[in-house]
Design a protein around this nucleic acid. Structure first.
Length: 884
RNA sequence: GCCCGAGUGGCGGAAUGGCAGACGCAGCGGAUUCAAAAUCCGUCGCCCUCUAAAGGCGUGUGGGUUCGACUCCCUCCUCGGGCACCA
């Protein structure tokens, strides 16, 4: 026993195991195993921004622990990784430091791949690809052409959200509070031709599909998607325009029951019919109003702070129900592309209409009364609840909810209205005036006009010789690219009379396109060409084998954007025949953010100046509360701000690389899985990391110090009844711990409680108190349970205990529920709900025998102090509650 | 305004309707050390109490269901997130 046990040196063991796994191809996966023995776990792939941050580490540690756990359970696990590598920062880097986007991107990828490998994540690296790889981008162009054939791609000129910061179009969901989601710069409305994907034709299925995802997806995400789709049932009602028999204005309303109470109609200022029906007397006024609205930024126009303004158009429309002539107002709050862009106004039963009517002196007509009791007079406030119809001719007396259908049917019979469903969801504009993206494969020519590139002429590849200076689209300004074919000859298309010169579309695709199908491509990343000689984006057999993804792990910030597009794409790909799967992600786990305390000073201008943690000295009291914080540089006080998501701008970041260098990958992985369930935010703390490290060191030292003597005995594998004393207790604990870890991982991926269970077990592994066989069983079980989370340490120790085959071969330990509970059950005895005694009785006792034993127990008799027991609730093995 | 979530020690959190606070962090006491780091042992909800025993109070608020509620139901409060001139 003279040789000292090896010290825990992660830097020495971790790279060795990484190299071994790699050499053995341990994380590559076969496609020919029955599906029920397969598991597809995927983490949202990163944008290659340069280096890994703690958010990545948390995301990927969760996914990797699941992947390794499932492998230990005998599954073939597909666990791929790739790069969401098109996008703006590459161009930003080009502008700022002259790096070519491609070079910058692929250098970042190389560095980050190295970091992922150093973390020991078990990816099937052979399947890796980047979205900017010619192979992937080209396959995506194929898909676009397929979508064109199915009528899912169209071009329309429309007002788009234009980011003044990025000089680029944004999707609705990229506009946050009227500002660009990336740069925070104002977003203005600009008229531009756009390529659009008809996601709205899948609206109904996208909504219905959410029901099936219930239970597998977080409720918050389902709710957000429902919200976003915004299904609204109502009616379209046609209003004739007075003096203009050729024009009909159709309104959309969810309250057809209030039709008899319409006192005016509002129309979006941009509405196409407006110019035709405004009389000369009002033209100037309306034009001025339109100009005013147009000048209002999207930011001001949205939100409830904006003033509701209207302008009489001089035109009148006719209520199809009553024949009443009511004024038409142009109103700034009517949205042109929701519903029909025309709204019937019922001041008596709608708050906004009421306010508008008061402001412009318009009449209020009551058509619904409360079913019981009295409401405020409608002149004072709108009554918006259901009630009983009044002032509505033949519908009087009917419940308003019923009248909705009745009035719609009546209108339908007169061909003046119809039941309709509208959606908040808009089609997906995919055009971006950017270089570092996938070109949209279309051409323009004189006689053919706009035409898709023929499949055999794909791919449309990005040119490398571009000038990127932030002044417009580099593709548009490239001297030859747009008019040159792949072979270098002038670009032509087949016109009716022969080849004619053509020009390429210079817009590239929204990068959400790439992330909408990469999970499918991972199943067949090498699929090349089909019989027609055309590139086939997907191999249906393999896609259907692996999809849907069993577990998808990523941030909640993608709740609507990416996850809705990916669902849409999957349905579209299915309709194209590329897969039979219609929902891509069976289970979704949204991990919380990695947060940290902020430290700052507030300048006189209210601007915060942030400090890095190592620039500040923080003093705490006995309870751990902050007493004071001062900057090391000047000794002046610093404010301790709230805990916020780690970000460079707030200087509250920790570089995972530094952690790995100091503590090793296993400590880093363990920390981000500890203490908190994966879906909650985790607050980074140096002490917490040290705690994780301490635990691993303890396990290491215990296992290594005991190794030599334990190798002489086999691990205990019998029934705990054969044991006694501490051995038996620990024997039971081993079974209990395996059960707890198994349940935690199977049910909720609750790594925090699994780790807690492992710590409890390790706390009980006392070499002085246990027989070698039981100690060995405890240590070896612990090693296996920790395997998915801290694989390097676990493999190293597993090997040290003489197992040549590795943890996957060893498998996940099993437990026997029967061996967990002790023969004697401890019963807390409650009297009137308060615990007054604790007694121990054989677990085999039940029924009347148990009751007799309880009531006869001296401690119970003493606690009762002679009071008669009115009722005794005795739950076998659990608890006793006596009512006196 | 509408739709989701969440409120438990100093902190993060744990708990199929059955002993609230597992596990970790911080704190406190001690061992080791010349000293520190590291490590180890003990202790650790609050109140009352010299200490202890024994009590009492405790899962945001108020009520309800139940032998028994952190857990289920209703009310309100606070915080977080999402949506919103959407007709």
């Amino acid at each position: 026993m003279s040789t000292a046990a090896p010290v825990y040196d992660p830097a020495a063991i971790e790279p060795v195991w990484q190299a071994r796994w790699d050499a053995a191809g341990l994380h590559e996966v076969r496609d020919d195993v029955p599906r029920d023995k397969c598991y597809y776990v995927l983490e949202m792939f990163p944008y290659p921004s340069g280096k890994l941050h703690m958010g990545h580490v948390r995301n990927y540690s969760i996914g990797d622990a699941v992947a390794r756990y499932k492998r230990m359970r005998g599954f073939q696990v597909l666990h791929p990784m790739g790069w969401d590598s098109f996008g703006l920062p590459a161009e930003q880097a080009a502008i700022e430091r002259g790096a070519h986007p491609k070079a910058w991107t692929y250098e970042n990828i190389a560095h980050m791949r190295g970091q992922l490998q150093r973390m020991g994540f078990s990816y099937a690296w052979s399947r890796e690809f980047a979205c900017s790889d010619p192979g992937y981008a080209a396959r995506e162009q194929d898909i676009v052409l397929d979508l064109v054939e199915r009528g899912l791609v169209y071009r329309k000129s429309s007002l788009v959200n234009w980011s003044t910061g990025l000089n680029c179009v944004l999707a609705n969901e990229q506009v946050v509070d009227g500002k660009c989601w990336r740069t925070g710069t104002p977003v203005i409305q600009k008229e531009l031709p756009q390529w659009c994907l008809r996601i709205t034709s899948y609206a109904e299925e996208l909504l219905k599909g959410l029901d099936q995802l219930q239970g597998g997806w977080p409720d918050a995400v389902l709710a957000q998607q429902r919200n976003w789709l915004g299904r609204s049932e109502g009616a379209e009602i046609d209003f004739a325009v007075d003096g203009h028999p050729e024009v009909t204005l159709t309104v959309f309303t969810t309250r057809p029951d209030t039709l008899f109470g319409v006192t005016f109609v509002s129309i979006a200022p941009e509405h196409a019919a407006l110019d035709r029906i405004v009389p000369a007397s009002h033209r100037a006024q309306v034009e001025a109003f339109k100009a005013e609205v147009r000048a209002t930024s999207a930011q001001e126009r949205m939100g409830d702070t904006a003033e509701k303004k209207g302008c009489p158009t001089g035109a009148f429309v006719i209520n199809p129900a009553t024949g009443a002539k009511v004024p038409l107002y142009a109103a700034n709050f009517v949205v042109a592309d929701y519903g029909t862009g025309v709204v019937m106004a019922v001041p008596a039963h709608d708050d906004r209409d009421h306010a508008f009517a008061v402001k412009y002196g318009l009449p209020v007509i009551e058509v619904i009364r409360p079913a019981a009791g009295e409401a405020k007079p409608v002149a004072e406030a709108a009554y918006t609840d259901p009630g009983v119809m009044t002032g509505s001719a033949q519908f009087d007396g009917v419940a308003s909810e019923e009248a909705k259908g009745a009035i719609t049917a009546w209108l339908e019979s007169m061909k003046k209205g119809r039941k309709v469903v509208t959606w908040r969801l808009r089609d997906w504009g995919i055009s971006r005036q950017r270089y570092w993206g996938n070109p949209i494969p279309f051409t323009y020519s004189d006689t053919l006009g706009i035409a898709p590139v023929r499949k055999q002429d794909l791919p449309v590849a990005l040119p490398m010789d571009v000038a990127i200076d932030g002044k417009g689209n580099p593709l548009e300004r490239h001297p030859t690219w747009a008019v040159t074919a792949n072979d270098g000859s002038p670009l032509t298309v087949k016109g009716p009379t022969g080849p004619e010169p053509a020009r390429r579309e210079t817009d590239t695709m929204d990068t959400f396109m790439e992330s909408s199908w990469y999970f499918a491509r991972f199943t067949c990343h090498d699929n090349r060409r089909d019989d027609l000689g055309c590139a086939a984006p997907l191999d249906r057999a393999r896609v259907d084998h692996w999809l849907p993804v069993d577990l998808y792990v990523g941030g909640i910030e993608h709740a609507v954007l990416h996850l809705l597009y990916a669902r849409f794409f999957t349905k579209a790909l299915s309709d194209l025949g590329y897969t039979g799967v219609r929902e891509p992600f069976k289970r979704l786990l949204c991990q919380g953010m990695v947060c940290m305390e902020t430290l700052y000073r507030e300048g006189s201008d209210g601007k915060k100046q942030y400090f890095y943690p190592d620039e500040v000295e923080v003093e705490r009291d006995a309870k751990g509360r902050v007493v004071s914080a001062v900057a090391k540089s000047d000794g002046q006080p610093v404010l301790v701000g709230r805990v916020e998501k780690m970000s460079k701008s707030k200087r509250n970041t920790v570089d995972p690389q530094a952690l790995v260098d100091l503590y090793g990958a296993d400590t880093c992985r363990l920390f981000v899985l500890s203490n908190v369930p994966p879906e909650l935010d985790v607050v980074w703390s140096e002490d917490g990391v040290k705690g994780s490290h301490r635990f691993l060191k303890r396990v290491w030292v215990l296992a290594q110090e005991q190794r030599d003597r334990l190798l002489a005995v086999p691990a205990f594998a019998g029934h705990v009844r054969e044991l006694s004393g501490a051995d038996q207790a620990v024997g039971r604990k081993i079974h209990a711990t395996v059960k707890r870890c198994t349940d935690a991982l199977e049910k909720d991926f609750a790594f925090n409680t699994a780790i807690a269970a492992c710590m409890e077990l390790s706390n009980e592994l006392d070499p002085a108190a246990l027989s070698p066989a039981v100690l060995r069983a405890g240590i070896e079980t612990l090693i296996r349970l920790l395997g998915p989370m801290v694989p390097h340490l676990a493999e190293e120790l597993w090997a040290a205990y003489g197992h040549a085959e590795g943890l996957n071969a060893a498998g996940w330990p099993s437990y026997d529920a029967e061996q967990i509970a002790a023969d004697e059950a401890d019963y807390p005895v409650q009297i009137q709900g308060k615990v007054r005694a604790k007694i121990s009785l054989p677990r085999t006792l039940t029924g009347p025998a148990l009751e007799a034993a309880v009531l006869g127990h001296p401690d119970v008799v003493a606690a009762l102090a002679g009071k008669p027991v009115k009722k005794a609730i005795i739950v076998p093995g659990k608890i006793v509650n006596l009512v006196v």
